[in-house]
Design a protein around this nucleic acid. Structure first.
Length: 597
RNA sequence: GCCCAUGUAGCUCAGUCGGUAGAGCACUUUCUUGGUAAGAAAGGGGUCAUCAGUUCAAAUCUGAUCAUGGGCUCCA
């Protein structure tokens, strides 16, 4: 919707409107609940929120009341007045607001701002007054509430949020709202939210009979129905073909491993809370794998490796299990069992640069094949606490940077944002609704080669430590699938559709010919079915439309007579009568081009 | 894990004040054999998420558990 950068947004008028709307909302809440304690209320992407400690839980009716009052307050055209205050004055003003007092102390002592972010300048305390409402705030705000259009503001939801994001601190009530420059933009935003809801993969996978979850069998574990499994197979087959062409070899590894493996890898030290509890087998602890890397390393270590056989590129669609906390599970996006499109690249220091460029290019081509054109890169560099030779970190980061530049990708650097074991590039794609999703991660690992003592014999006859790069391009197949569903709203490109064409005989006497056509299409490699139910043609078309099947082939007396089919597209377009051969050519072209229809 | 909300037929949902359940779609059968998004009728289908409790009586009230949703935290 808006393509502003973060900096542009923070400097924008819209940012001020939202920030000021948050204040107006807090004023309305305080009016309704004079004993309320207010926390913080910043602008966020597409809106704002404010956190409150309230005597009771808010209801939907409360929200409507607060929204109505908030609009009235905005209409009163109050000035937003900035004032710098002394610590004593500030403490006096907020004497009955414990959260504000804590913020004041933090700002003074730690030089952080009211959101806990570090600031370099001398700490100053500032307040904003708007009508009777005073808030500790650095701003900026609109100069007068007449800059906010009451009809361009809407409160959306209430949710729990920890004070200062700390799970050990009190749980506050957060009211989310959205505010725009004009009522028209608000309406557009609400329409966008509707569209997001309509494309929700949790709803669509049910409607399209792709997969299910089962309460009785455990949350966060997906069951792929025939249609979903067909799509998944197509995705995986395509992935394998590409990898084969891209210079990868494949490995297949077990799902469980003894504790030795996870002690050596360090997972039991650093990652245990995300692993499923061990199972006892003959007195030994076995763990379900949360990652594939240690298994690949064991394969590496089955022989003495020479620099002449590097680089090794080993790929596996490896199914892993991670214990995700119950509250974070979310459809296919966050599950407890998923398949990573994993690979490990093991190479020498002088191969690293070309390998990184190679994998980056490879990933971009793969993502584009699925219809994701807008891609943004994020480079995360060495954090303070890190393992591995700093010179290697430097080389790794440089090679990542050069690869991004070579591909002409837009990128942001997250200084110190890398994992302790290595720097990485993440690729985020933008979906049809403009939302960003992280898919690819290309990650150096300076930790595991040490822990498992991986070596290769160099030209000099001595043992060297190889570089290891861990990469997942689609990330998790489950999550990627969910993103595809939302990106296409369930109307997948023909090459991915589980059912590409449905043959619709108008009357029973057309079924025999329909079956002949079906055979012909199957022979041509198309996924097709015949609707031989007793429904009327209109109902059959409707069923096919609801299943978002790209081609409907209507067969009646005319078609049987002429040996043709009448084509209807899921878009509603009706190319009409054509020969079976022409339709096959058309459909095969769409598959080949990975076209939408 | 935490806060809040929700859980009724395969799906989408209704169910008032506590008196042991209803619709539409889907399914089965019959009739209908049709020209681009729902032809008609009849029938079958529910331990009201689970387990306790209160009550003469619980889908309805209470508690616990499980799951889902909105968020928060987490995601080496």
């Amino acid at each position: 919707m808006d393509n502003m950068s973060k900096e542009e947004y923070h400097a924008s008028n819209l940012y001020r409107i939202r920030h000021s709307a948050a204040h107006m909302m807090a004023a309305a809440v305080l009016e309704k609940f004079p004993e309320a304690k207010i926390a913080i209320g910043p602008p966020i992407e597409n809106g704002f929120y404010y956190d409150f400690d309230l005597p009771r839980t808010l209801t939907q009716e409360d929200l409507e009341e607060i929204e109505a009052r908030m609009r009235e307050l905005i209409a009163e055209r109050v000035d937003f007045e900035y004032e710098e205050v002394s610590p004593d004055k500030a403490r006096e003003l907020f004497s009955d607001q414990p959260y504000k007092l804590e913020l004041i102390d933090d700002i003074l002592e730690q030089g952080t701002d009211e959101y806990g972010e570090k600031k370099d300048e001398e700490p100053t305390l500032s307040i904003y007054r708007s009508g009777g409402f005073i808030d500790l705030c650095r701003g900026p705000h609109v100069e007068n509430s007449n800059r906010i259009r009451p009809k361009a503001v809407k409160l959306l939801s209430v949710a729990g949020a920890y004070w200062r994001g700390d799970a050990d601190r009190p749980m506050l009530q957060r009211i989310y709202g959205t505010a725009w420059a004009s009522p028209k933009e608000l309406r557009e935003h609400l329409k966008w939210l509707e569209e997001v809801k309509k494309r929700d993969h949790r709803k669509l996978v049910k409607q399209l009979d792709l997969l299910s979850f089962h309460e009785e069998a455990g949350p966060g574990l997906a069951y792929w129905h025939p249609r979903g499994a067909m799509m998944r197979m197509i995705i995986e087959d395509f992935w394998r073909d590409r990898h084969m062409a891209g210079g990868y070899d494949f490995v297949v590894t077990p799902h469980i491993g003894k504790s030795w493996l996870w002690e050596t890898s360090g997972h039991l030290d650093f990652y245990k809370e995300s692993m499923y509890s061990p199972m006892d087998v003959d007195g030994q602890d076995y763990y379900l794998k949360p990652m594939n890397c240690p298994f690949h390393i064991l394969i590496y270590k089955t022989s003495l490796r020479s620099y002449r056989e590097l680089p090794l590129r080993w790929a596996e669609l490896g199914t892993v299990y991670r214990y995700e906390k119950s509250g974070v599970l979310h459809g296919l996006m966050r599950v407890r069992g998923f398949t990573q499109d994993d690979a490990h690249i093991i190479c020498t220091p002088d191969q690293i640069e070309s390998e990184i460029l190679r994998v980056l290019r490879f990933s971009l081509a793969l993502l584009r094949a699925f219809g994701f054109e807008e891609i943004q890169a994020y480079l995360a560099t060495r954090p303070e606490k890190a393992v591995g030779d700093p010179a290697r970190w430097e080389q790794a980061q440089e090679s990542l940077k050069r690869a991004i530049n070579a591909e002409g990708l837009a990128y942001e650097v997250d200084e110190g944002g890398g994992a302790f074991y290595g720097p990485k590039i993440d690729l985020h794609i933008k979906d049809a609704l403009g939302r960003l999703w992280q898919l690819t991660t290309i990650q150096f690992d300076f930790n595991l080669p040490e822990r498992f003592d991986m070596t290769y014999v160099g030209e000099d006859g001595l043992e060297h430590r190889p570089y290891m790069v861990h990469r997942a391009l689609l990330g998790s197949i489950e999550r990627f699938f969910g993103i595809l569903v939302e990106h296409y709203g369930g109307a997948f490109p023909v090459w991915l559709c589980p059912e590409q064409a449905r043959i619709i005989p108008i009357a029973d006497r057309h079924i025999e010919y329909a079956r002949q056509v079906e055979d012909q299409l199957r022979e041509a490699g198309l996924r097709v079915s015949t609707d031989s139910s007793s429904s009327r043609m209109n109902a059959k078309i409707r069923d096919a439309q609801l299943m978002k099947i790209p081609y409907m082939l209507i067969i009646g007396d005319r078609e049987v007579e002429a040996g043709q089919i009448a084509l209807r597209m899921r878009s509603g377009a009706r190319p009409g009568a054509m020969s079976v051969e022409d339709f096959v050519a058309l459909a095969q072209a769409a598959v080949k081009d990975r076209a939408l229809e």
